[in-house]
Amino acid sequence: MNHLVVYAHPHPESFNHAILETAVKALEDKGHQVFVRDLYALDFQPVLKPQDTAAMKSGNIPDDIKTEQEFITKADVITFIYPIWWSGLPAILKGYVDRVFAYGFAYAYGEGEIIQLLKGKKGLIINTHGTPKEIYDEMGMTASLTITSDVGIFDFTGIEPLDHLLFGNVSEYLEEAALKDILKQVEEKINSLC
């Protein structure tokens, strides 16, 4: 299977990068072909500009958007790996969704209905955040994040959400054993799903 991993964290030494490495290794160990789109390393331009929408309406998709859409088209499974910042996606990933999951590529509107153009694909989301999980659970943030990303992005476009791993209380103060446990959970989840 072809796996596309869209990764958004600016620091190569981050724990999110360790999650990325763990996910890629688990997939490759199972014989899958993996393509990683590290949005910061690519210096992906996240701002949807008027010229972008004008170009797409005329059928002239900007090259950077077209490249990312080709990766999505080829993928059987799409995995997003990113930290939760200010209760949502990092700006670079939000911009990726804004520009790449465009009308006419990821979705369209029919007679009173949404046409999901990415049906047949599956999706996985892996997040970290600094707030303890229990606090996010109690305030409804965990449920909100799941709805926003799994339903609002994946399901809206026809991608079947496989799972959404949310790891809370992740910071430089977390003990090494706890970090290793998270990586083990990532590996086990990928092995069980793919």
Results as ranks from 00 to 15, higher is better:
residue 22 T to G: 04
residue 65 I to P: 03
residue 67 T to L: 13
residue 137 D to M: 00
residue 7 Y to H: 07
residue 10 P to A: 05
residue 135 I to F: 08
residue 139 M to G: 05
residue 114 I to G: 00
residue 190 I to V: 11
residue 91 A to M: 02
residue 47 V to S: 09
residue 138 E to A: 15
residue 94 K to V: 05
residue 69 Q to G: 08
residue 36 V to T: 12
residue 88 G to W: 07
residue 24 V to M: 05
residue 109 Y to N: 04
residue 57 K to F: 15
residue 176 E to A: 11
residue 160 E to I: 11
residue 171 S to I: 02
residue 193 L to V: 11
residue 52 D to I: 05
residue 133 K to C: 03
residue 177 A to K: 14
residue 136 Y to C: 10
residue 49 K to D: 05
residue 62 P to G: 06
residue 194 C to M: 12
residue 18 A to S: 14
residue 34 V to I: 03
residue 12 P to C: 08
residue 90 P to L: 06
residue 3 H to Y: 10
residue 22 T to E: 10
residue 113 E to P: 05
residue 60 N to K: 15
residue 130 G to R: 00
residue 177 A to T: 13
residue 69 Q to M: 06
residue 55 A to G: 08
residue 78 I to K: 02
residue 64 D to S: 03
residue 152 G to W: 02
residue 127 N to M: 08
residue 181 D to S: 13
residue 51 Q to T: 14
residue 189 K to M: 07
residue 72 I to K: 02
residue 191 N to A: 07
residue 69 Q to L: 04
residue 2 N to T: 10
residue 132 P to W: 05
residue 159 I to C: 01
residue 8 A to G: 07
residue 38 D to S: 00
residue 15 F to D: 06
residue 128 T to W: 06
residue 79 T to I: 13
residue 109 Y to F: 15
residue 32 H to E: 11
residue 48 L to M: 11
residue 106 A to S: 13
residue 17 H to K: 11
residue 92 I to F: 05
residue 15 F to G: 04
residue 46 P to R: 06
residue 103 Y to M: 14
residue 30 K to R: 11
residue 91 A to T: 09
residue 189 K to H: 06
residue 163 D to Q: 13
residue 78 I to N: 04
residue 156 F to C: 09
residue 116 Q to H: 12
residue 142 T to R: 07
residue 5 V to M: 08
residue 9 H to G: 03
